[in-house]
Structure formats: C-alpha cells, structure tokens
C-alpha cells in the first residue's frame, strides 16, 4: 500500500493535505468541520491581536473562469479565539497551525506567543494578505521587512514558524530572507490581488473593490514559484494555490512541496481530500514508488 504519510515541522502527518488558511478556522466548531472533511492538519483563519469584523458583503464571489475572488477583511476573533480552537484540535487528535496576521512586527510577535502558549503545533505568518491595507501585501513584497518580522517572531518562539508569501517580483528573494531569519518553512503562495467588475452595473463587485484571486487560474503561477524557491533553497515548502484534484497536488509535490493546502477546491468539492488521496495512491503505484516522500521535488532531477 502506497504510503502518503509525510513529516513536516516535526509532525508526522497522515497525509499531505491541509486546509488553506481562510477556509473556516475562526472558531472551535469550524475545527470539527475541517477534521470531519479529512484534513491532516488544521490551519486557522488569520488571527490578529484584536477581533476584526471584516468587510460587509459581498466578500466572496465565484468567477466564470473557475477562480474565486475574496476580500473577507481578516474577520477573526482576535487572540482570545486561539486557545479554544487549539484545544478542540487536540481533542480531535489533529495538529493545528495558527495563521498570524499583524499591522507591524510587534503584533505578529504577540499573536505568535499566544499561539505557542495555547499549544499550537506551529504558526504561519500571513505576510501577504492582498486585501487589507497594512496587513501583509506591501510587507511580503519587501524582503527586508519579511526578514525583520520573521526574525522577531522566531527569536521568541520555540514552535516552528512558517512564512506565507504571495506572488510578487520579489517572492524568491523574500523566501530566502524568511529562511535566513529562521523560518522553518514557507507556504507558497497566497491569493493574488485582483478585481472583478460587473459589466452591467459597471461596478466592482466586492465591497472592498480589491480582493485576492484563488483557484485554478493561479495554479501555474504557484507551481512556478514553488519550483523556483525549491531549486534555490531546497527548503520545506507547503504548496498552495488552485489545487482542485490529485493531479494538482502531485504537481506541487514534484515542484518541491512536502505538503499542500486546499482552499477554493474545498468550496467546490467537500469530498476533495478523499478524492486527492485516492488519486495520489494510484499515482504512487503507477510510478512504482513506496512513499510520497520520494517524489518531493522530483521534477528537479537532472
């Protein structure tokens, strides 16, 4: 039987499929739902120090090219929401990574400390939220800021730190700086800043006008980024962006990702985790490989 188990961040995961941050994950019962649907490790919604209401609707639209555009506005319960979710995940026997947001380095540090105190398995620094001003995107595109925030968090934390970066011209450089600052790994990539205008009313649809594009349209970009960053640094990468079936997951793994996050794909297909795992098992058999570990970064072999 093909082995889909994978080791990341000191955790032995049953399989490499995690949920992407932003899919539920802002309260304990959400954790139940994510576990029920089979994710091997839970990633919370991005948590900021104080609670945030987020933007008024529309906050999410499905596009006719298969993508989704969202501007939820980092709605979250604040740090007080972390412990209940971590406790629930522990009760259900699943590791949990807390996605951390912040307007400045100090906020990232404080939220991360809270996550560690609550017993989270790790933190994922959201350095790339594309739709909240001052929360990420400008920061993630500035390699020296990435270095500073990651270093500040890593210096006070014992649990592993992931840096989640978005697409920018400097994503390779920012990845390198995050690793240099002590990040245990990278989540690549976040949604891409985008817009959708309704041509009848002649208005942008999202209440925030700008949103983050996810889903199949961004997958080839994400694959390219994972491929380049893996080639450059050989680091731990969690691939994210447009995974809607096992083939997409396999592509990320070949490009260099050790695990894969699914967001939009889960909105369209609640049974996606099972479908991906079944496909990956067959794929391993056809490839004549025992363990999925052997195929991480396999597209780079000469």
């Amino acid at each position: 039987m093909a082995n889909l188990g994978i080791r990341i961040l000191g955790l032995n995961l049953e399989h490499p499929i995690l949920n992407a941050s932003g899919i539920l994950g802002s309260e304990p019962v959400h954790v139940d739902i994510l576990v029920k649907y089979g994710f091997s490790c839970i990633v919370t919604k991005t948590i900021t120090l104080e609670p945030r209401e987020g933007y008024p609707p529309p906050i999410l639209i499905e596009l006719d090219n298969g993508g989704y555009l969202n501007a939820v506005g980092l709605a979250n319960p604040g740090v007080k929401g972390i412990c209940p979710m971590v406790e629930r995940a522990r009760l259900l026997g699943r590791p949990i990574i807390v996605s951390v947001g912040g307007g400045d380095s100090r906020e990232y540090v404080e939220v991360s400390i809270k996550a560690e105190e609550c017993g989270a398995s790790g933190v994922e620094l959201n350095l790339s939220c594309p739709h909240v001003r001052g929360f990420g995107l400008e920061l993630g595109a500035d390699p020296s800021m990435v270095y500073r925030v990651v270093r500040d968090v890593v210096s006070v934390l014992k649990i592993p730190v992931l840096a989640k970066l978005g697409f920018s011209d400097k994503v390779i450089e920012s990845s390198g700086r995050a690793l240099e600052a002590g990040a245990a790994g990278l989540t690549l990539i976040n949604t891409i800043k985008a817009m959708y205008i309704d041509v009848y009313s002649a208005k942008p649809v999202l209440s925030n006008k700008y949103g983050g594009l996810s889903g199949p349209p961004i997958k080839p970009i994400a694959i390219r980024v994972v491929y380049d960053v893996y080639r450059e640094y050989g680091a731990l990468i969690i691939g994210c962006g447009g995974v809607s079936g096992w083939r997409d997951a396999a592509e990320f793994i070949l490009a260099g990702a050790r695990a894969v996050q699914v967001g939009s794909g889960f909105l369209r297909n609640r049974g996606i985790v099972g479908d991906i795992l079944a496909g990956l098992r067959k794929w391993l058999e056809v490839q004549g490989v025992e363990s999925i570990e052997e195929l991480v970064g396999f597209a780079h072999r000469s």
């Binding site: 539920l24 739902i33 906050i59 999410l60 939820v72 709605a75 609640r270």
Partner: peptide, 22 residues
C-alpha cells in the same frame, strides 16, 4: 449568511458542525 459558499463560516449553526449555506 456572509459569503454563502462555505468559506467564512458565519452561518455556523452552533453547536452543530453544520453550515446553513451548504
């Protein structure tokens, strides 16, 4: 109901692990 597509979790029917929109 906010997003209506099962992402934001606003329509959670606490304490059931069920979303109204899906």
């Amino acid at each position: 109901v906010k997003c209506g597509l099962g992402a934001c979790g606003s329509c959670l029917l606490k304490p059931l692990p069920k979303l109204l929109c899906l």
